[in-house]
Amino acid sequence: MRLRKLIEELNLFERERIPNEIRLFGIATYIQTSSTRRTAKILSEIHSVSHTAIWKWVKKFEQKLPISTEKKQRNLIAIDKTVVKANKKRYFVYSALLSCRR
């Protein structure tokens, strides 16, 4: 209830085509999933919303109320797996990439 009043006071959204409750749910879901497409898919059960609209909501929200203020230095690791079939056998091929920032 307080968050809805806060969003109305901050006047984050100019247009009222989509109810603020759905926008709040979309922002909260994005924070949990970190994926605008996944969030749009979840919200499609309630209201049709594009992933671009969700991205814009999150950016507006972050301008007024930063979600995270602290940046951390991290070592990035990317891992991928694929299955290759040869001679009627399945082989799992893994690849990993490590990026160390200095």
Results as ranks from 00 to 15, higher is better:
residue 3 L to T: 03
residue 5 K to N: 12
residue 5 K to R: 09
residue 6 L to Y: 07
residue 7 I to L: 13
residue 9 E to P: 00
residue 10 L to Y: 05
residue 11 N to M: 01
residue 18 I to N: 01
residue 19 P to Y: 04
residue 20 N to R: 06
residue 20 N to I: 10
residue 21 E to N: 11
residue 23 R to A: 01
residue 24 L to V: 06
residue 24 L to W: 06
residue 26 G to T: 05
residue 26 G to E: 09
residue 30 Y to R: 06
residue 31 I to S: 09
residue 32 Q to P: 00
residue 34 S to K: 11
residue 34 S to A: 06
residue 35 S to R: 03
residue 35 S to L: 05
residue 37 R to A: 12
residue 38 R to Y: 04
residue 40 A to H: 04
residue 42 I to W: 01
residue 43 L to F: 11
residue 45 E to Y: 13
residue 49 V to G: 02
residue 50 S to Y: 02
residue 50 S to I: 01
residue 53 A to E: 08
residue 53 A to V: 04
residue 55 W to G: 02
residue 58 V to T: 12
residue 60 K to Y: 08
residue 60 K to D: 07
residue 61 F to M: 13
residue 63 Q to P: 00
residue 63 Q to C: 03
residue 68 S to A: 10
residue 69 T to I: 11
residue 69 T to V: 13
residue 71 K to Q: 10
residue 73 Q to A: 11
residue 73 Q to Y: 01
residue 74 R to Q: 11
residue 75 N to T: 14
residue 75 N to W: 10
residue 75 N to K: 11
residue 78 A to Y: 07
residue 80 D to C: 02
residue 83 V to F: 06
residue 87 N to T: 01
residue 87 N to Q: 06
residue 91 Y to N: 14
residue 91 Y to A: 01
residue 92 F to Y: 12
residue 94 Y to D: 07
residue 96 A to G: 14
residue 96 A to W: 13
residue 96 A to R: 14
residue 99 S to L: 15
residue 100 C to K: 14
